[in-house]
Amino acid sequence: MKQVTITVNGTEYTKEVEPRLLLSDFLRHELGLTGTHVGCEHGVCGACTIMFDSESARSCLTFAVQADGHEITTVEGLAPDKDNLHPLQQAFWEAHGLQCGYCTPGILMSMIPFLKQNPNPTEDEIRHALSGNLCRCTGYQHIVDAVKLASEKMK
C-alpha cells in the first residue's frame, strides 16, 4: 500500500491505496465521486475523462499513485453550487446534449479545456474534439449544438 495525497475538486484527500488501483476506481470507490463513469477501461470510450492538472486525461489509464501531489477535476467540480450549473452543463441541458447521460461527464471534462483553447470553435473543430468520446444515443448532433451554445455562453 502507498499513501497518496490528491486534490480533487479543490479538496485534499489522503488515502492508502494499492499501486494497481486505477484513478477512475479511486475516484468512484474511495471518494464516492461516481460522476466519473467507467466504460471500456482501455482508453477508447472517453467516459472516464477527468482533468489532470487542468488537462483532459483518461482516468482509467492512470494509476491513483500517479496522481499523488496532483490536482484532479471531475464533473462534480464544475457547478459553482447546488442550485447553479456550469455554463457548459447549462448548455447541454438547454440544447438536449444528452439522452442516457452515460458519456456526458467525460464529454464535459473534454470540452472544458477544448473551449478554453478554442473559444470560438467551428462545427468541424467541435466534431473533431468530440471524436475521443463515444456516445451511443444521440448521434452527436445535439452534443455539437450544446458545445456551440456553451462557447457563446462562456464568452
Binding site: 482508453g43 472517453g46 475523462t49 489532470f52 488537462e55 483532459s56 486525461a57 483518461r58 489509464l61 492512470t62 473534454s110 479545456p113 477544448f114 474534439a129 471524436s131 475521443g132
Partner: peptide, 9 residues
C-alpha cells in the same frame, strides 16, 4: 496520434 486526452499523457 489518438485524441488530445491521450496526447496529454
Amino acid at each position: 496520434i489518438a485524441h488530445p486526452q491521450i496526447r496529454n499523457r
